[in-house]
């Protein structure tokens, strides 16, 4: 499979993501600078990694979400291509309109950097098909604005159609996200965004391989 990892100014997790995609998904990975207006030919999955694009100015992900490369990513998604956004990547996907809702300042106002327990709520997605529904894995979070919010109708639609992919397991919600939501997907199921960093829980030096099956799922998706 061919993966493209998008790099905006201020992104800092791109190399972790490249390694996870190579190691876990067996992907051939290229990095894509934000001024590009097209994706490398044959790209199966576009990954928007974590960091602080444009210094989080205006709102987290707001400026990156409207940059030239996003048009190519929106077209890729409209064609059914896979898109994954992690942390700032999730914020960027909501700001670009690819995913509903918004990520707000953590309810506790503090930057949270620790491990949480993540429950797999839907195991029929391109990123979770190697998991079992209800599996709980350890996964790190590192963010200041991960407090997921959506209006009542959007939230109902997400819940009713199984589009909440990951939830913070009981008692580990680090940011006040509504319904403990940690990750969601779009209606078509080809765009997923999540706040935690699965790319940082895939090899022995990370302390656990808990999130490796996510990338193995992705490897089988295309």
């Amino acid at each position: 499979m061919k993966a493209a990892v998008v790099v905006f100014p201020g992104i800092n997790r791109e190399n972790d993501m490249v390694r996870a995609l190579e190691r876990g998904a067996g992907a051939h990975v290229s990095k894509l600078w934000h001024t590009e207006t097209s994706l490398p030919a044959g790209t199966d999955v576009v990954v928007v990694p974590g960091g602080f694009s444009y210094g989080d100015y205006l709102r987290c992900g707001a400026i990156a979400g409207r940059s030239p490369v996003m048009k190519a990513i929106v077209s890729h998604a409209a064609r059914g291509g896979l898109v994954l956004g992690v942390c700032n990547g999730f914020q960027i996907l909501t700001e670009s309109g690819l995913l509903p809702g918004a990520l707000m300042r953590n309810a506790g106002l503090k930057f949270v950097c620790r491990s949480v327990r993540l429950s797999v709520e839907n195991n029929s997605t391109f990123f979770t098909r190697n998991m079992v529904k209800g599996d709980v894995v350890t996964c790190p979070v590192a963010h200041h604005d991960g407090n997921y919010f959506a209006d009542v109708d959007t939230l109902k639609a997400l819940e009713d159609t199984g589009r909440v992919v990951f939830r913070y397991a009981q008692g580990t919600n680090p940011n006040g996200a509504i319904n403990d939501i940690a990750g969601i997907m779009n209606e078509a199921g080809n765009v997923i965004g999540m706040m935690p960093h699965p790319e940082n829980m895939i090899e022995p030096l990370h302390g656990s391989l808990d999130c490796l099956p996510l990338f193995e799922s992705l490897g089988k998706a295309a």
């Binding site: 205006l58 400026i63 918004a102 919010f149």
Partner: peptide, 9 residues
């Protein structure tokens, strides 16, 4: 509408 505000919130 396009950038300055996020009309979701």
């Amino acid at each position: 509408e396009k950038l300055l505000a996020n009309t979701v919130i």
